[in-house]
């Protein structure tokens, strides 16, 4: 697809705008829906932004035992996420093609996880370390599901480039709703786990014995915490965006639409996903830690079936 210069400028503006605004709106939606379901008024939809601004202006409190890893962690996390936000096709339109290889993206995510895990153990606090230990356990289980889910579409498109996977040019994939639905479900389930949301981890409690992500960033404060929060929001937007892309691709009639209407439907889908997550979080309970692998097993099931279809299906053709 060729765009003129004006189109490129518009694409840049739109994508920067959505890259900045969508994460905040998504978390705002989740909180608002949750609050409404609990008969509360809830915070304003831009509350996350206000919180971030406040955190950025605050003073930092740092433990006396920490090393450089802790101090750089926020910046490393946010830069990895910014890089991913620029390269991963989590929106329908992308101003610049940096090439987002599937395996590369997953290992970049692992890089940010490595840094967070080390930073969590830096202060010598048992909370951080328990969180870190749980985080690596969960991610060990989720990783194969995520790889397999995205790879199974990659097999059908015969490319590991996410841009190629999510492009609308391969019309052969337009009628394969089943696999897209499965992959979308797998990605959203993996996303719930990766983002430390219910039912794996409750982002709203601070009970140290159960939490995962919150325990890891327990020692962070001020701008450092703000950067971590930012990267978490971006990660949420990326993962929700990817699964919304999958669901978008599963609707056959979308394939023939213009890019603008695809983009609009995609953003609406993202908010639908956010509301669904909020509803799910209101009715579900947090799983006992030992039950978490069983939850992740369902995610792996979706990806396995998708992989099976991809392997068998490419032969039937």
């Amino acid at each position: 697809m060729n765009y003129g210069a004006a189109d490129t400028v518009v694409a840049w503006i739109v994508s920067l705008f959505s890259g900045f605004l969508l994460p905040i709106l998504l978390i705002g939606t989740i909180r608002k829906v949750k609050a409404r379901l609990q008969n509360r008024v809830g915070p304003p939809i831009f509350q996350a932004l206000f919180d971030l601004v406040k955190l950025f202006r605050k003073k930092q409190t740092v433990s006396s035992t920490v090393s450089w890893i802790f101090k750089w962690n926020g910046a490393i996390n946010l830069s990895v996420m910014l890089l991913l936000a620029l390269s991963v096709p989590w929106l329908c339109y992308k101003p610049v093609s940096l090439g987002a290889d599937l395996f590369f993206v997953l290992y970049l995510l692992a890089l940010s996880r490595f840094s967070t895990v080390l930073a969590a153990m830096d202060a010598g606090s048992a909370f951080g370390a328990f969180g870190a230990s749980r985080e690596v356990t969960i991610s060990t289980l989720v990783e194969p599901a995520l790889v397999l889910a995205l790879a199974s579409i990659g097999i059908l498109t015969q490319s590991s480039d996410l841009d190629a996977i999510f492009s609308f040019s391969n019309a052969a994939l337009s009628n394969t709703s089943g696999i897209w639905l499965l992959v979308g479900t797998a990605v959203i389930l993996a996303g719930l786990v990766e983002l430390s949301r219910m039912p794996v981890d409750d982002p709203t409690t601070h009970l140290e014995l159960t939490m995962v992500h919150e325990a890891m960033i327990l020692e962070c404060s001020g701008p450092n915490l703000a950067m971590l929060e930012c990267s978490q929001l971006l990660r949420m937007a990326i993962l929700f965006g990817l699964s919304a892309q999958c669901f978008l691709h599963s609707i056959p009639c979308v394939w023939t639409m213009t890019i603008v209407s695809q983009g609009i439907i995609h953003v609406i889908l993202m908010f639908v996903i956010a509301s669904c997550v909020a509803t799910f979080e209101s009715v579900a309970v947090k799983l006992q830690w030992r039950k978490v692998p069983e939850f992740i097993a369902y995610c792996l099931t979706m990806s396995l079936i998708a992989g099976l279809i991809a392997v068998g299906g490419s032969l039937v053709k």
Partner: peptide
């Protein structure tokens, strides 16, 4: 930003 050195949260 200013930095305040403190104990690890206990």
């Amino acid at each position: 930003s200013q930095v305040r050195i403190s104990r690890t949260w206990d």
